[in-house]
Design a protein around this nucleic acid. Structure first.
Lengths: 236, 236
DNA sequence: GTATTAAATTGGTAGTACCAATTTTATGGT
DNA sequence: ACCATAAAATTGGTACTACCAATTTAATAC
């Protein structure tokens, strides 16, 4: 019972065609797709269906559309992950605790991978950011904090982990940036977070994965404590 | 310069409207959306645009469409993650090594969370699966192996981590199932994997996170070794 | 009250038309 | 020959209509 193309919904045909073209090397990042009217003719489906498929791939980050210019293969998937997680968040399928737990797992793995892959220049850059971060006596500088984690994620050389961490960061910005600020602003958490960041940087310098594990635990330990405090207040 | 609704592309309006409805509790998992022709009228956009938006949310897993019946708010996001990662894979933005690294981080975190949340009944279930798995003398039973990891991920009580792990599993099935089988089939890896699985189960029983860390390292240590062997052969 | 049938509803697809942004081509001047 | 400008062609964005196909709902017959 092979029905291959028939029976399938038209927009699925279009998506599969594009996938096939990518798989076969006909399309790659930067390539321009055939015009919608052309695709419509090639595949024997209406332009409606072509557009539904392209719109989906657009939102997913696979394609970027430019009116008048054409549709191009992109490669920016963070948007898709953000969109997806946003919906999960809105539908109450996930909460901040889950996001934090995921981050903990990924930050640790990113740090461990970075230990294997980071260059000396990158370490210097991170040391610089961390030094600036510790000069902040008032509160944790959110931007510097993000930069620190960003650079570590980058040094992991794992696009997938990097993308997910970026998506999580954006998700936090969108929905719970105030919560994060509250968590980071108190004096005690600031000190512990500085220690944690120091530990992370030291683990990179010493290429010490055990230290990395401890530092991440310290980092997210305090985040979790603060999160629970916050929840208790909200409950009252 | 507030332009709110104007200037925005029509399908964006539709998506934002649906998001808003979800945020305000008008729509939740299981809810039925207004008919496409209705939405079209409500928002003052063409049915085309409504469909482009709905199609996107459909592929994302937020909506499930049923011809004749209607569009319903769903909540099955694995499909979206799979789609997204599939595209990343096809566009050579990620490879098996990266997937394995991500899995390693998530499996560890899932196991650690499971230690805190798993019930005795669930432990019994997992022990049973593991016992069956060790009876397999010929090769690793892929299905049982997947079940073991599946149940641990479930016990983590983290939908997000669970979803990503499921997506990774499907991705592996789709593209590199043969590679996985090759990795798991050799005698030495079978023994080590059994030890690793034992360690994971024991860590759950003893609620020992240190043991969990060691077991996961053993598990993915052998996977990585086999992966590198495979790569070396391919290079030749 | 139940089973069957007809009608209405709703998503799926196709086609046409026109607008808007961009690119390409043609035109004119120096 | 070169460049700036304008016209034409291309291409995505949107709207509207029409019809098909699956499903649900209402009507009918028993």
């Amino acid at each position: 019972m092979e029905e291959s193309a028939t029976n399938k919904k038209s927009y699925v045909k279009v998506i599969e065609y594009i996938k096939k073209q990518i798989r076969e090397g006909e399309l790659k990042a930067g390539s321009r797709l055939p015009a919608e009217r052309e695709l419509s003719e090639i595949l024997g489906v209406s332009r409606n269906s072509v557009r539904e498929a392209i719109r989906t791939l657009d939102i997913m980050g696979v394609i970027s559309s430019h009116q008048g210019a054409g549709n191009y293969i992109s490669g920016n998937f963070e948007n898709n992950l953000v969109e997806s997680m946003t919906m999960m968040f809105l539908l109450n399928q996930i909460d901040y605790q889950q996001i934090s737990q995921l981050r903990r797992g990924l930050e640790l793995q990113a740090l461990i991978l970075a230990i294997d892959n980071i260059t000396d220049a990158e370490i210097e850059q991170i040391k610089k950011i961390n030094a600036q971060l510790e000069h902040e006596t008032e509160e944790i500088n959110v931007i510097l904090d993000k930069q620190l984690h960003y650079n570590i994620a980058l040094a992991s050389r794992n696009t997938l982990i990097f993308s997910i961490l970026q998506a999580l960061s954006e998700l936090i910005d969108q929905f719970i940036s105030d919560l994060r600020r509250d968590i980071l602003m108190t004096e005690d958490s600031r000190l512990i977070l500085n220690e944690a960041h120091d530990g992370m940087v030291k683990s990179l310098i010493a290429r010490d994965k055990e230290l990395a594990y401890l530092a991440i635990n310290k980092h997210f330990g305090i985040v979790d404590v603060k999160l629970r405090e916050k929840e208790r207040k909200t409950m009252k």
